[in-house]
Design a protein around this nucleic acid. Structure first.
Lengths: 141, 141
DNA sequence: CTTGAACCTCTACCTACTGTAGCTTGTAAG
DNA sequence: CTTACAAGCTACAGTAGGTAGAGGTTCAAG
């Protein structure tokens, strides 16, 4: 039987985060000692490890909830899992594309800075530039 | 004199967001009509455009606050602006690196999926894999 | 003068946690 | 057996960066 602190250390999670996962129903309510402290088993460790790994891969808690549901029904089609993972991959790729454009813009901006006073700072000028800004109302990062 | 709705349309911002920026002190309190409605001038449009453009480049509101402060004191050194922009560039590059690793992992995972039932789904197996997860407690995405 | 779109304030909600206050439990040492 | 104290508990507040809705008021066109 593991205490919440041990579980936290073994999965690299904060104690509060574990209680939070329980609160939102991602982790089942564990057994308690007479005094009311939580005690976990190995299946909790596995489940939490799964959650943390998926989080590291950028899955939202909602997606993880779906994955756990699928995982609990082993006879369902793998295609659902596949679909969720594909969606995640797409999102990651979109984010990368956006960040890359952003990186280029920042580099360009910095390349033009003459390092003089703010009055004629290129960086601020670029940021002030309406032409680029008012015409493009795409999503932020 | 512009209404808040016009300002919103011209900058691609939601009306509530403009009021939110005012609330946190990023935008100055504008003049009001007798009835209490906000009315903006061109300087407000410029400032908001600046904010939105910087947000699109991924700057935090705190960083934008700094940039606006610098912008209001044109005699200060451009180096401060440069420093903020460099910090931003670094952050973006870190995020890209992380996302790219993530993309590779997702692709690898999906490549191995046999599309059978969940019972032997590779995606879930990878997510369950302790070896990778319990040993690496790096920051999430 | 009427209509209705756009404005107002205020409050609550979102994600995914994190931190704090004030109190209780568990455990090891003496 | 007692004591000390780390680690646990609940409950609530706060973070970023907004977004949504209720319920009421104002503005401008027809």
């Amino acid at each position: 039987m593991l205490t919440i602190g041990t579980l936290a250390k073994r999965t690299g999670t904060k104690v509060q985060t574990i209680r939070y996962y329980e609160q939102i129903g991602l982790l089942p309510e564990p057994g308690r000692t007479e005094g009311g402290q939580r005690r976990y088993g190995d299946s909790d460790l596995d489940r939490l490890a799964f959650i943390r790994h998926a989080r590291q891969l950028g899955f939202t808690l909602e997606a993880i909830r779906e994955l756990l549901d699928l995982s609990d029904n082993p006879d369902r089609s793998c295609a659902d899992v596949d679909r969720i993972a594909h969606r995640q991959l797409k999102e990651v790729e979109v984010r990368i594309t956006r960040l890359d454009a952003l990186r280029k813009e920042l580099k360009r901006m910095l390349g033009e800075c003459s390092r003089d006073t703010v009055a004629d700072c290129r960086v601020l000028e670029v940021l002030r530039d309406h032409a680029a800004c008012l015409t493009d109302h795409g999503q932020g990062v």
